[in-house]
Amino acid sequence: MAGFDKVVGSYAEAMAGLEDGMTVIAGGFGLCGIPENLIAEIKRKGTRDLTIVSNNCGVDGFGLGILLEDRQIKKMVSSYVGENALFEQQLLAGELEVELTPQGTLAEKMRAGGAGIPAFYTATGYGTPVGEGKEVREFNGRPYILEESIRGDFAIVKAWKGDRYGNLVYRHTAQNFNPMAATAGKITVVEIEQLVEPGELEPSQIHTPGIYVDRVIVGSFEKRIEQRTVRSAN
């Protein structure tokens, strides 16, 4: 098993090799399914000038939002970034660059990047500011724009259960962008809630096969809720 045992013992080891100026692809939607401890490790390391590819940028004080505190992010590639005041400040001050990308296009850019497809045509964004300057081609009478895929120097991922081989299962809607992010990193680092032994996960139920995964670390998670909406039990 030694060659396939991807479990590392510390967060420092998990993020070893991350350098200034690198691109990091992060799983998560809002605060759901975010690799919260791997993000905290990037803050601790103090790595700067990062390009972060993630649907959102956390909130003030949690998730990717904490990387804004010491200005570690140079550029965000996201579909929606309106959840934190610090982000707004740095954006308006010109200290932070943002490439707004439609959510489905963002997911597909990661998927294609991990699958070895350099670009794809989509109708999403045609005729809008997103389509400006992009190649247009008609298929069956409809115009599509060419979107390039994304790969990261690192991908940081949150899963529920994982085994030593890096086979992963996500929990509920904490899946979101994580499976695509996992495929698109030169180095893919996953933090999991529960470590199981190879063979314990049903092979046909695995969401992310271990071939995509380089490092696994077991974490404990706060799992902060962004919009706590409940109804009465009656």
């Binding site: 509920h172 809607t173 695509m180």
Partner: peptide, 24 residues
């Protein structure tokens, strides 16, 4: 459950017969 949200980031439930999948 923090792992069960909708696109508005609100906590929700799933109905019987629901399915859950990736963003792609």
């Amino acid at each position: 459950d923090a792992d069960m949200i909708n696109a508005g980031k609100q906590t929700v439930t799933a109905v019987q017969g629901a399915s859950i999948f990736s963003s792609a």
